[in-house]
Simulated assay, not measured.
Amino acid sequence: MFLQLDRVRLHYPDRAAGAAAVDVASLALQAGQLGVLIGPSGCGKTSLLRLIAGLERPDQGQIRIGDDVLADAATGHHLAPEQRRIGMVFQDYALFPHLSVADNVAFGIRHLPRGERRQRVEQMLALVGLGHTAKRAPHQLSGGQQQRIALARALAPQPRLLLLDEPFSSLDVDLRERLAQELRAILKSTGTTALFVTHDQLEAFALGDVIGVMHRGRLEQWDDPYTLYHRPASRFVAGFIGHGVFAPARIVDCDGHPCVHTPLGELDDVAECPLPEAFPGGECDVLLRADDIVHDDASPVKARIERKAFRGSEFLYTLRLASGEQVLAHVPSHHDHQVGEWIGIRAEVDHVVTFRREAA
């Protein structure tokens, strides 16, 4: 593994006793991989980034890049940030307003001979598609262009690891999605190993080879995007990722194979369904995502539309079953039903995700 964190913990003195900003987090990132940390505000993802950068000292655990130990709480070893060869891109770009674009990119490589420095700047600006802006001032560029200049500046010293703290948070939604795809292509073309922090799920899935979900300082799951979505390791991850609800269910034996009784009917022939004895009496909560619910007027199961959100190609309907349970559904936008209307729905669940029943 290239980057490795082993049971790292950080507690800020001004926090409540026992409340750790980062609570025994472990992760591994291979060379050339793009990792993403996601979670609600205050969950510890930026604190984890600061630990890797060397801006904070861990109270517990060890941080390594390859065979190089960056920090070890047990021995007190702490490599200074400027010695770690780690690049950083911040959400506010942090470009120097009094320097040209080219001089901003050259800032971290002033030790190089002039000719080599000029060549590296040209390479970096060409890489981000902004070679024509070399002589401009940062304020003459758009927000998206400034972010790409910040990336070029961070890549110029050829860091062995790049850390990005919500780099697109100040940009509009459409630009964020496009830049995320461009940034992934740029980093993959250079073989750069990078770790991002974001609060945007679409951004995380667009960027990450591996994604970590944090909650109250704990790294709840560190996995590839497909597994994270379809096999969440905890109830928090299941509820945080995507659009879905938990519905009461019961796992029973159906002619030698397990099936799940839900408010939308019986789910059978599903992959990796838990056995009935996985929960007391088979009673559990099943995760029903919006993409598990299909609009079908012929279905005997009906639900009342409580809310609708137009998303261009589809609506996100919030529905209430006659039995009282709430579910969500993605419905093609040409099915434009009104709030209060009853529609037919059915469940199509390929990945059954269940957790212990929670009290109402």
Rank of each mutant, 00 (worst) to 15 (best):
M1V: 15
L5E: 03
R7K: 15
H11E: 12
Y12I: 05
G39N: 06
G42P: 09
L48W: 09
R50N: 15
A53N: 10
G54R: 06
R57K: 15
P58E: 05
Q60M: 12
G66M: 11
G66T: 07
A73Y: 11
E82Y: 07
I86Q: 03
M88C: 07
V89N: 09
V89H: 06
Q91I: 08
P97G: 11
L99G: 04
D103W: 04
V105L: 10
A106K: 11
A106T: 08
P113W: 11
R118N: 13
Q123H: 13
G129C: 13
T133P: 02
A134W: 06
P138C: 11
S142K: 10
Q147V: 08
Q147A: 09
A154T: 04
A154R: 00
L155D: 00
Q158A: 15
E166C: 08
D172N: 10
V173T: 11
D174V: 12
R176M: 04
A180E: 02
Q181T: 13
L183P: 00
R184M: 05
I186C: 06
A194R: 00
T198R: 00
A204M: 06
F205V: 07
F205P: 00
A206G: 05
V213F: 07
D224T: 15
P225Y: 06
P225E: 13
Y226L: 15
Y226I: 14
Y226M: 11
F236G: 01
A238F: 09
G239P: 05
F240Y: 13
G244D: 03
G244H: 05
F246N: 00
A249G: 07
R250T: 12
G265I: 12
P280M: 07
G281A: 13
D285A: 11
L288M: 14
K302M: 13
R304S: 10
I305P: 00
I305H: 03
Q326H: 14
H337A: 14
W342D: 12
I345D: 01
A347K: 02
D350R: 15
D350E: 14
R356L: 14
E358D: 12
